[in-house]
Simulated assay, not measured.
Amino acid sequence: MGSLLTRGSFLGVGVVEQVGSACTAFRIGDRVGWGVINSTCGNCEMCMAGKDKYCPDAKMYGFDGYDTQGSVCSHAVRKEQWLFKIPDAIPSGDAAPLMCGGGTVWTPLVEQCRIFERVGVVGIGGLGHLAIQFAAKMGCDVVVFSSTDDKREEALRLGANEFYATKGVLDYAMLGVTKPIDRLIITSSAKFNLGLFYPVLARNAKILPLSFDDGDLVAPNMATLLSGNSIVGGCICSRFLQNKMLDFAARHKITPIVEKYPMTLHGVSEAVNRLRNGKMRYRAVISWDY
């Protein structure tokens, strides 16, 4: 069993050892992954519309005291409704990060972005480095914004076509962005005035904030109205899209950048400390196999 360590959640990949009598989707020996949701009602408007991730009765790890379905363990009991079969082409150490970060960036890309559009990615971290790969493989023109030049070569290697460092720049019109950005995916948890990016956005652009964090988003009212820009929130991934994401990642060889730790107290502590200190690059995978 492998475990992905992210901000506040442990998402896993494991091998099925037992199945209940009512289980029809999986067999013993199947390799499966799971995310933050363990069950939904299946009967509400959101579930029936294929937007089951917004089910008001969803049981989500880390929310409302529901904290017993993590992955730092030898075994876990999960409902088949929210388990996903891992393609053979994806190693478990890569599959675990895809269960969270992969699904999180995949949803706005397939729902809000078209292949001929310029897609901006703000931040190169656990979400950002996956967003670059997915968007590039989809055929989008990928433009990356990061605070410094440190990750320029990495961003270009992952599939970005342009890179801009923003630290110390007060007017983003001075960045020299070659053409306006149609879709702006914000993967950084840092809060800033979204108006900073308006000079480089196309008319009717969509801004897609993804990172879970407290605080408020701030955007200029008049500029938003006159440009027709919209801010579209998103939460993890529906079951349908999660399976499609795994298939796409397998076919296009999308590979998360991970650090590996043993499934021991020392290994988990070391991973948590690196995460708290902001040194993780970019996901920690904790496993019995390391």
Rank of each mutant, 00 (worst) to 15 (best):
S9E: 13
N193G: 11
N243D: 13
P91R: 06
P56W: 01
N221I: 15
C41G: 03
G125Q: 03
A131W: 07
F212C: 10
C44I: 12
T224V: 11
I181P: 11
T107C: 12
G233P: 04
M60F: 03
E117D: 06
L83W: 07
T187V: 00
T264Y: 09
G120W: 03
L196F: 12
D64I: 09
S21M: 09
S238D: 13
L241V: 02
G168C: 07
C47P: 10
V268Q: 02
P209Q: 06
V32Q: 10
D213E: 12
G234V: 08
V142K: 01
S188N: 04
M46D: 15
I181T: 06
I124F: 07
N229T: 15
V19R: 03
F163S: 09
M46L: 13
D149F: 12
L196K: 11
K59S: 12
V36N: 06
A76T: 14
L156H: 02
S9R: 05
R78C: 09
A131N: 00
C73M: 08
D52K: 10
E117C: 07
S21C: 04
G102H: 12
H129E: 07
T104V: 13
G123C: 11
G65L: 06
Q242V: 05
V72H: 11
L246N: 02
T264A: 02
S9W: 10
E111W: 05
F10W: 08
Y164V: 08
S287E: 12
S39R: 11
N277Q: 06
M48D: 00
K244M: 13
S9G: 12
L241T: 08
G65K: 04
L109Q: 01
